[in-house]
Amino acid sequence: MLNVADVHSYYGRAHILQGVSFALPAGAVMVLLGRNGAGKSTTMKTLIGIVRPAQGRIEFAGADIAGWDTHRIARAGLGYVPEERRIFTDLTVMENLEVGRQPARDNRPPWTPDRLFALFPNLGRMRNRTGGRMSGGEQQMLAIARTLMGNPRLLLLDEPSEGLAPVIVEEMANAILALKQEGVTVFLAEQNPHFAARVADRATVIEQGRIVWTGTMAALQADEAARSAYLAV
């Protein structure tokens, strides 16, 4: 699904990604772990094209998307849910979803507001509420639903559990597992090890701009050294 090879990215003059390489198989839920400032967010932003990689290949759905414009990457089927959610607070739930709408792809049934409201029942009860009048948890669900309206092949989630109450984080985890059932591939950056362990079947760890560990979640939890280094509390 996604094949990243030796990607370098700069943020201003700071060399953040220093040769990131990993592969993500279709249908997987993979978590990107790492310290703050290790390059998790920059990896996500580089994949969607908000940060342009200085070097390297990003193969996605049969094309090298490195250097493409963000909107073109999104149309190729990469969905991005940013940190801090970035809901359009002046727009209603329905309008937020409309902004995300893109044509169906791969002969799969397209996501519609009704299907999304089945996944996130809370949203269905506030169709005409503006984003600014929703709680953090509701905004996070809307952010994911909005991106799903683009019928992405791969969903990037940057810290989806950040700043949310535990009971909401749990709902979020259930929603991601439901998406996995639907066959959506998910790549998420996460700081909450419990959440990561619950939803992910694969993990990759970034440190100082380089990938230092990749494997299945089971392998990570079995590897005592890696587990205490990357999943420790």
């Binding site: 999104a74 359009f88 893109q102």
Partner: peptide
Amino acid sequence: TRWGTLVRAATQDREMVAALGVDQ
């Protein structure tokens, strides 16, 4: 109109609009 909705969204956060596949 859809165009108007996109414009109002871009007013708030143009980068996000691009990430949703709109040529901002």
